[in-house]
Nucleic acid binder design. Structure first.
Lengths: 197, 197
DNA sequence: GTCTATAGCTTGATAGAC
DNA sequence: GTCTATCAAGCTATAGAC
């Protein structure tokens, strides 16, 4: 169940520049199609058509459908991290991430849908979400601790609980976005954060 | 897309006692199968086999697959409401609901999965989730207001924001349950509630 | 109200040429 | 690395007998 890229050592995948471009195009297009048709109604064939390759051609790059979709999320996580690292700010991590993804409803829809599907332990994406949840949680805990030390967050609050609540709130708002597109995710997380200061 | 039961007037569906029993058995069994196999891998045929009827027999009662699954959630909402009304308590509504559903992971999995699938406006369950979200939100707002009047909740907090945060937290925790079954949903919501008192 | 039978489609994945 | 061709399997929903 472990993906290739995780088992592989630090060295880069050996691919041509052309192949890399194709991979990126596929990932972008997959997100676009999912946004348009919905996660459940999106087939490999439909993505392939939008890209301009065949379904078999796509599977050459990603092996399975789930691997492709997980890769969309993985790449977006990496991109998010780079964007946030490059431009450090005062706002807590979950708020900044929410702001960064505010105009990517398709990404949030994919995230929520795949997370739900990966609920079953045997699912190909189960390990990805388990690891991600743990990693992001630790990240936020560290952030909260630092701000407690700086006197920015109340010292009597359990950092673990604060992180859990912030991240679950973030996930829940993304889930509710389908029923009410007007929800302001970043503003809501920011409001809760303010209760902790 | 509007379901029969919504368009129909208040009068009861005219079904035999035997038919009613079958309906209930189907709804219970559907939840059991979904818990065992996962939402995405559950077909009408598999539920039918577990019930001991044919797939066509089930569709006679519910029309479509989505209508069946929505009905599972709808009946559970009704059951929840009755249970909470019958035994009124001091704890806020979301905490009591969480406690009541704590031992029903299959229900939470179905809820999260169907909510994600119903994200697309055209989806058969879209209206159900939109209406439900609004209804539950109003319910919690009323609860919060009453407790503010009773001096139990800080009066400076916007009841709307409090309700939004509590409900999104609830949804998010249910979504994360797949990746970490050890999460204590009720305790986490209770902790956040305590920050508002 | 439950059944059998099947229509009618779509799907993910593979084999193998080029 | 991309293609064509195809497979085997699965699905929901419907028609119509009983």
């Amino acid at each position: 169940m472990t993906s290739d890229s995780e088992a592989r050592p630090a060295r880069q995948r050996r691919v041509s520049a052309r192949g890399q471009e194709t991979r990126e195009l596929i990932l972008e297009t997959a997100l676009e199609v999912i946004g348009r048709r919905g996660y459940g109604a999106t087939s490999l064939r439909e993505i392939a058509d939008a890209v301009g390759v065949t379904q078999a051609g796509m599977l050459h790059h990603f092996g399975t459908k789930e691997a492709l979709l997980v890769e969309v999320l993985r790449q977006r996580d990496i991109a998010n991290r780079r964007a946030l690292d490059a431009q450090p700010g005062d706002e807590p991590t979950p708020v900044r991430v929410a702001r960064h993804n505010a105009n990517a409803p398709a990404l949030m829809h994919l995230y929520v849908s795949l997370q739900a599907a990966a609920s079953t332990p045997g699912h190909p994406a189960h390990d990805f979400f388990r690891a991600r949840q743990e990693r992001v949680h630790d990240l936020v805990v560290t952030d909260v601790r630092a701000r407690q030390a700086a006197g920015e967050v109340r010292a009597d609050l359990d950092p673990d609980r604060v992180a859990t609540v912030l991240l679950a709130l973030s996930d829940g708002l993304q889930a509710q976005l389908g029923a009410d597109p007007d929800i302001d995710i970043a503003a809501t997380i920011e409001w809760l954060w303010a209760q902790f200061t």
